[in-house]
């Protein structure tokens, strides 16, 4: 537990110093909200229909930005090697990075969410909290896969470009489940929502365990 919290704490201290990751994620998320508004020019009822999709596109792309940024900190000066030299197993290292990626994404999303509610004329009530809860689950699943895939993509010659190519096909169930659950919350028809929540939970657990086991192969030279 101690090395895990050390990694998270270290990432937070770095972020407090340079403020680069969250600000760029936030800006990017905002731009997605704005661009999609222009692209679709939704009015009234339509807006509530397409809003969940737009929100998760914003979260997904902001998340990819955050994942790339988080890894580039470790690649700078070969810091990842320094972590690999430390007496913690590779699985714990993976969990540490998942934790810090998750926290960063959550912070950015918590800031994007109110703006989203405002832009799309939604309400700040129970719905808002429900969507925040959903984001929590969806983001965790996203961070679990994203952390290992960003480490894989860091080994390629294309680095940052490779991440979305690897990540989006694999996280489609997460995006789909999050969008559908968000729509259910927004439309108030929440009876079918539990299967989506189970899917997000199951996905997170399965990928967390699998990645924990194979992370060693990704980082060893």
């Amino acid at each position: 537990m101690k090395p895990l919290s050390a990694i998270v704490f270290k990432d937070i201290v770095i972020e407090l110093r340079n403020k680069e990751t969250i600000s760029s994620m936030l800006m990017f998320g905002l731009l997605v909200l704005v661009v999609f508004n222009f692209a679709f020019q939704p009015t009234g009822a339509e807006r509530a229909l397409i809003a969940p999709g737009i929100l998760w596109v914003a979260f997904t792309f902001a998340g990819i930005l955050g994942l790339n940024r988080s890894l580039s900190i470790e690649l700078d000066n070969d810091c990842l090697q320094g972590l690999l030299l430390a007496p913690l197993d590779r699985g714990s290292l993976y969990l540490g990075k998942v934790a810090s990626n998750f926290i960063f994404m959550m912070i950015a999303e918590v800031m994007i969410l109110p703006i989203f509610v405002l832009f799309y004329n939604l309400r700040f009530d129970l719905q808002f909290l429900q969507i925040a809860g959903l984001s929590f689950l969806g983001t965790f699943a996203f961070a679990a896969v994203g952390t290992i895939l960003s480490t894989i993509s860091a080994n390629t010659r294309m680095k940052e470009v490779m991440l979305p190519i690897l990540l989006i096909p694999l996280t489609l169930p997460v995006i789909l489940a999050s969008v559908m659950a968000t729509s259910a919350v927004l439309s108030g028809e929440t009876e079918g929502i539990s299967s989506w929540l189970y899917l997000l939970g199951g996905f997170s657990i399965v990928y967390l365990v699998a990645s924990y086991l194979v992370f060693e192969f990704v980082v060893e030279e």
Binding site: K10, I14, R17, C79, L83, P87
Partner: peptide, 28 residues
């Protein structure tokens, strides 16, 4: 093991104390 190469594995955004504090926590 202590391993030193031409790369120092230090975080550029942290100061020396913060860097060492981080590694001290990793190594207990």
């Amino acid at each position: 093991i202590g391993f030193l190469s031409h790369n120092t594995y230090l975080y550029r955004d942290l100061n020396p104390v913060e860097n060492l504090r981080f590694f001290a926590r990793l190594y207990g």
